[in-house]
Design a protein around this nucleic acid. Structure first.
Lengths: 213, 213
DNA sequence: CCTACCATGTGCAAAATTTCACAATATTTT
DNA sequence: AAAATATTGTGAAATTTTGCACATGGTAGG
């Protein structure tokens, strides 16, 4: 595979998808898996699996398949989930809460080291996990002091852009925005907008074209 | 536009995206918007906006643009968010909590009319919104009795497939799965898998290729 | 009423992505 | 040791999606 090939955005997301069944296989003691099986688990085409992996190297053995353990490690290395990331969250509502407390994320090496809110009621309180809720005004300083790499936005939509600007100003290089607005940031800061109401709407769209009983 | 044209999956998701700034424009009293402006708000190409809309009809006026109010209604009608949907949630952890309580969803017409868990500690308690937490064993009956259309899965991944089977068995036609496993269901049931750890991993991937300071 | 202008809707070309199909290579069987 | 079988990696074809460019139709000003 050419090193210069451009990697499709979707291929990256599928890599993460592939890692899910691999973890299960590893736990259940299965050592080898074929692209066909892996594809089946993830609901994609086997050639797609092979091509996606081929963007990054040759991880399989012809005639045999992929070593589960090796492949999982390779994928985690590619996705950079084999290291710890320090994050902060802005907006400690129910969703923010759920994300910070999520065991799944913790296991993946995402460490929340700061939580911000603008509600005076919440500031100075602690989350169940022990994290102190601080004023957004402290954001800039805290981000620098604690060397925070990623900012997660779970504020209401009308605050999202303002918070983004604050994060950018503090020198953050990656933002995950869960509010239902597209936020904009300079190229130097990678933004991932995760509007999951979109998926509800997608589902509703499909259901509306189907007899509901 | 041909009626027979197949509509890209991504076009549907963008439709939902377009609705976000439209709501804001409506509130701020702006009555007309061009594909160029709308595209700018959503970070896409203007031709894309026009083409996406053209899949469903002619909503604009040449030389003028789109009427904000009309377009929003059209999109909501297409996405079937102009009606109420009855949903249930299975797995009342932090995430389940956050989704059920989310004002944004409520405003969109998504009504949660049942919440299930298998934890005896939680069963018979009430959520802050007043919803009673019931045993998963009641799922089949409750789904039928309350005419539930959509099931939202927020259980740990190892429960997800079992819950899916229960939902399918109860006759549910749409599932939104927030657990980090792909669940499978017969064609008669539309499944939307929303694994948002994927977006974290995507962000990590990008950040790992960028000098972090 | 005519001219200038503007922004949509869309045919078509380009780009991106997916899938096929098969050569390459490893393992197992005879 | 050859044949049969399995499964990867990948060039090329097929398909899908995007974006350009412009004809079309509507508005506004003179």
């Amino acid at each position: 595979m050419k090193k210069t090939a451009k990697i499709p955005y979707a291929a990256i997301e599928r890599l993460a998808l592939y890692s899910r069944p691999l973890k299960v296989l590893l736990k259940t003691g299965v050592t080898v898996v074929s692209s066909e099986k892996l594809a089946e688990y993830c609901g994609v085409n086997p050639a797609q699996v092979r091509k996606d992996l081929a963007y990054f190297g040759e991880f399989g053995v012809r005639g045999v398949g992929y070593d589960v353990n090796d492949l999982l490690r390779e994928i985690q290395s590619i996705l950079a989930t084999d290291r710890e990331w320090t994050l902060c969250i802005i907006g400690v509502g129910n969703l923010g809460h759920a994300i910070v407390e999520n065991d799944n994320f913790r296991e993946m090496g995402y460490r929340f080291v700061a939580a911000f809110d603008k509600d005076q009621e919440k500031i100075s309180k602690r989350l169940p996990c022990g994290l102190l809720i601080e004023s957004v005004e402290r954001l800039r300083d805290v981000v620098r002091l604690r060397n925070i790499q990623i900012g997660v936005i779970t504020t209401p939509p009308d605050e999202a852009q303002r918070v983004t600007d604050l994060l950018v100003d503090a020198g953050i290089k990656g933002i995950l925005n869960f509010s239902p607005t597209q936020v904009k940031a300079p190229k130097s800061c990678v933004v991932e907008n995760v509007d999951f109401a979109v998926r509800f709407e997608h589902l509703a769209y499909h259901l509306s074209k189907v007899p509901l009983k």
